[in-house]
Computed example of a mutant assay.
Amino acid sequence: MRVKRGFDLCCVIPAIILLSPLLLSLAIWIKLDSQGSIFFLQTRVGQGGRLFKIFKFRTMHANTGLKITATTDKRITRAGMFLRRYKLDELPQLFNVLIGDMSLVGPRPEVPDYVAHYPEAVKAEVLSVPCGITDYASIAFRHEGELLATSDNPEKTYIQEILPIKLAYQQQYVRERSLWVDIKIILQTLKVL
């Protein structure tokens, strides 16, 4: 765990410094594009079931309320469309890694409502490690919003069809995890972006 945390900090601190002009520019754009805060904070479930607030750039008009979003959702702002397309809305999660809520690589943290659908044995396994910004499921479902856009009931589709596959990927990560696997997943993530 110390090696993983050390690796995270060695990557995240320089990344935040290098990306600070981009982060500032995006923050200004979000503020000019629509009313509301720059950041979207949402409660997620982390390692051991601990709740924390995940940071994202806000991509939707304020006070929209839903937990999942299809690509064609009318509540997405102009800036939000661009941020989502290039996954730039996820960049503030570097601060979650910095403060220790997350790791660079690990099972993506979910909202408590969706964690309630995890089978107990799977939940124990997936939540046994630090959650992350990226993992196998993040790569496989990088176009999740487009999949949900074709569904008559996006939340049902997510819970019944997408979530079980994501959990299988997350279990695979837990069983294979190593520093080398983390590096491989980071490189695959950068490649698909």
Rank of each mutant, 00 (worst) to 15 (best):
26 L>D: 03
26 L>Q: 02
26 L>M: 11
26 L>H: 02
27 A>V: 05
28 I>H: 02
28 I>R: 01
29 W>C: 00
29 W>N: 00
29 W>P: 00
29 W>L: 08
29 W>Y: 09
30 I>W: 10
31 K>P: 12
31 K>H: 14
31 K>C: 04
31 K>L: 08
32 L>K: 02
33 D>C: 09
33 D>W: 07
33 D>I: 05
33 D>F: 06
34 S>P: 14
34 S>A: 15
35 Q>T: 13
35 Q>D: 15
35 Q>F: 11
35 Q>E: 15
36 G>T: 08
37 S>F: 01
37 S>N: 10
37 S>D: 11
37 S>A: 09
38 I>N: 10
39 F>S: 06
40 F>V: 06
40 F>W: 13
41 L>K: 15
41 L>T: 12
42 Q>T: 08
42 Q>V: 12
43 T>Y: 01
44 R>G: 00
44 R>T: 00
44 R>S: 00
44 R>M: 00
45 V>T: 15
45 V>M: 09
45 V>P: 08
45 V>H: 04
45 V>S: 05
46 G>D: 10
46 G>A: 06
46 G>N: 08
46 G>L: 05
47 Q>Y: 02
47 Q>T: 03
47 Q>I: 01
48 G>V: 08
48 G>F: 09
49 G>W: 14
49 G>S: 13
49 G>I: 13
49 G>H: 14
50 R>M: 09
50 R>S: 14
50 R>Q: 15
52 F>M: 02
53 K>Y: 13
53 K>F: 10
53 K>N: 15
55 F>A: 12
55 F>D: 10
55 F>P: 11
56 K>A: 06
56 K>F: 06
57 F>H: 06
57 F>A: 03
57 F>R: 07
57 F>D: 05
58 R>E: 14
58 R>Q: 13
58 R>C: 13
59 T>Q: 05
60 M>L: 04
60 M>R: 03
61 H>T: 10
61 H>E: 09
61 H>W: 03
61 H>Y: 12
62 A>D: 04
62 A>E: 12
63 N>K: 15
64 T>N: 03
64 T>V: 01
65 G>L: 06
65 G>R: 06
65 G>N: 11
66 L>E: 06
66 L>P: 09
66 L>S: 10
67 K>Q: 10
67 K>F: 07
67 K>S: 11
68 I>M: 09
68 I>A: 05
68 I>E: 05
68 I>L: 12
69 T>S: 12
69 T>Q: 07
70 A>I: 05
70 A>M: 07
71 T>C: 03
71 T>V: 03
72 T>D: 15
72 T>I: 04
73 D>L: 02
73 D>R: 04
73 D>I: 02
73 D>H: 03
